[in-house]
């Protein structure tokens, strides 16, 4: 199957938006480590800005950038959201409450604890009543999400905002599931070519071969973040080159993306 990448959003350590990150990913500017921006996306209403969790804000920061870089309205775009670990701060807060004497779970934390909370806030922000699917596949959640987004766009003939997002757990869960840095990326993909398509991606599952190396221009520590596994693809988008990217997928197959630059 094939999809077209219309626009990109990114929020990571020293990767503050696509415009600023593109030369870094293309290898023409050096990466400088800085904490991931914790800005609250202005596409959220005042109430949702207050209520939303850190994972929702991060995911929507990336999605908002991709939306504004494209020429499609938010309400004509379906959503696919992928994450391995959801919102670790919320998990921590609820598990601590449940281990305490009162077992008071905050109602806001409980509704923020659902895995699809970022996608829910996104649909409220954009007014999109189209389908929204949230997928998890542990370390390969990005690849699983890309399959979901590509099959959705292909079969339903609709554009898809595909958002991948993972954040570190706080102590003590971070000792059991070590993820460094907060990272989110958003790809607005369409089933057919549009005027400003950045790339065409042909996507297939194939028997194992050597996976594409993580971009050398980025710190090794970012590899621990499952959502950051998209970075070989984003680096290629930044360089606008033709190449085949291989992402690890399962014990029996890899996700192979044949990338062709747009015109």
């Amino acid at each position: 199957m094939q999809i077209f990448v219309a626009s990109v959003g990114i929020a990571g350590p020293g990767l503050d938006g696509w415009t600023a990150s593109r030369p870094i990913l293309a290898g023409t500017a050096a990466h400088r480590m800085a904490p991931t921006s914790r800005s609250i996306p202005d596409i959220l209403s005042a109430a949702e800005r207050r209520r939303s969790s850190q994972s929702a804000r991060l995911a929507i920061t990336a999605a908002q950038e991709a939306l504004r870089a494209g020429d499609l309205r938010g309400d004509e775009i379906a959503t696919v959201f992928a994450s391995s670990d959801g919102d670790g701060d919320i998990t921590q807060e609820i598990c601590e409450s449940l281990a305490g004497p009162a077992r008071d779970v905050s109602p806001t934390s409980f509704h923020n604890s659902v895995y699809n909370a970022p996608a829910g806030y996104w649909s409220i922000a954009t007014g999109s009543r189209l389908a929204s699917t949230s997928v998890c596949a542990y370390d390969v959640s990005f690849a699983a999400g890309l399959i979901e987004a590509a099959t959705y766009a292909t079969v339903e003939h609709q554009p898809v905002m595909f958002i991948a997002c993972d954040l570190p757990f706080p102590f003590p869960l971070n000792t059991i599931r070590p993820v460094e840095h907060s990272f989110a990326a958003a790809l607005l993909v369409t089933p057919t070519a549009r005027n400003a398509s950045l790339m065409r991606w042909k996507i297939s599952l194939e028997p194992h071969r050597a996976a594409t190396a993580f971009p050398a221009c980025l710190p090794e520590s970012l590899r621990s973040n499952p959502a950051a596994r998209c970075l070989p693809l984003l680096a290629l988008l930044a360089r606008n080159q033709r190449a085949t990217i291989v992402l690890e997928y399962s014990d029996s197959s890899d996700l192979v993306v044949l990338c062709e630059p747009g015109t």
């Binding site: 895995y115 699809n116 997928v135 998890c136 979901e148 590509a150 099959t151 599952l205 197959s253």
Partner: peptide
């Protein structure tokens, strides 16, 4: 050994699996 994912969309999760499965087979 085929494709695999968990879907988590709160209380619609295991209805959504039918939609995704249908798409997987369609492509």
């Amino acid at each position: 050994q085929g494709p695999v994912a968990s879907i988590s969309t709160a209380c619609s999760s295991s209805a959504k699996v039918f939609a995704s499965a249908s798409r997987w087979m369609a492509v």
